[in-house]
């Protein structure tokens, strides 16, 4: 009992020290192999030097590599639906966000926009062929949400104690390869008071990786190999069927 009181005192003692965050990932490297059907990443962490009083809120964001996306709009022309206008924008290929509560419950629109928190606040340098870029950006978010690549949930941060938290991040099978960033924000009274970011990599492994590298380093040999494989299989099948009939 005394030990516990002492521990609590020790934790509360350095009142001058700032409240900060530490966080870690269940893995910092995700390998895509032939049996890959999606996975789950666990982000865990703790608030250090917790200050008493007030409410703490934690936001966890996972951002995939930025990609140049082309969105086109179909128009009804002469009875047919034809692509008629387009917009190009740089946006993350994967985006996950969750918090202890709905974002607007503890932060105002300006703050959320400044940190690009929430699917509605992703900043894109959009160039639209017909002027208004907003509907294209909205359409992209819709498409990516359907594909399971953009995810926003309200209360995905599980508080395991007053200061320990954990988040499960779903990684779909169609996750793009590349370098990801896991960002954790600590909110106090509507402002970010601490933040931490950890890199995370998604890459192919084993046979898949070798095929991918072969196809990109010597494409002509790869093409020839693929054609020969096809023809050899076709040839082999005739022997197999002749033997059986």
């Amino acid at each position: 009992m005394r030990a516990l009181v002492l521990a609590l005192l020790l934790l509360a003692a350095p009142a001058s020290a700032e409240e900060t965050l530490t966080s870690g990932l269940s893995q910092d490297y995700l390998q895509i192999t032939s049996t890959f059907t999606g996975s789950e990443l666990t982000v865990f962490g703790a608030v250090e030097n917790p200050r008493a009083g007030g409410t703490r809120d934690i936001v966890v964001v996972v951002r995939g590599p930025d990609t140049l996306m082309t969105i086109r709009r179909k128009d009804h022309i002469a009875g047919l639906w034809i692509n008629n206008a387009r917009a190009k924008m740089w946006l993350p290929s994967y985006y996950f966000i969750t918090a202890t509560r709905p974002l607007r419950a503890f932060a105002d629109a300006d703050t959320l926009g400044r940190y690009e928190l929430g699917l509605g606040n992703l900043r894109a340098d959009t160039v639209a062929s017909d002027g208004d870029a907003k509907p294209y950006a909205d359409a992209l978010v819709r498409t990516q949400k359907r594909a399971g690549l953009y995810i926003q949930t309200d209360a995905g941060v599980e508080m395991q104690s007053a200061t320990l938290f954990r988040v499960h991040v779903p990684i779909p099978a169609a996750v793009p390869r590349g370098s990801y960033n896991v960002e954790v924000y600590l909110f106090r009274a509507g402002e970010v008071t601490a933040a931490q970011s950890t890199p995370f990599y998604v890459d192919q492994a084993g046979f898949e990786r070798r095929v991918f590298e072969f196809a990109h380093t010597s494409p002509l040999t790869y093409g020839l190999f693929t054609v020969l494989m096809a023809v050899a299989l076709g040839w082999a099948s005739t022997f197999f069927f002749r033997a059986r009939t």
């Binding site: 082309t70 969105i71 047919l80 639906w81 692509n83 387009r86 290929s93």
Partner: peptide
């Protein structure tokens, strides 16, 4: 497919890293 109204007139037609 060319004649009926698409579910979403916007579509993602390209993504290059």
């Amino acid at each position: 497919q060319l004649v009926i109204a698409p579910a979403d007139v916007y579509s993602l037609t390209g993504a290059t890293p």
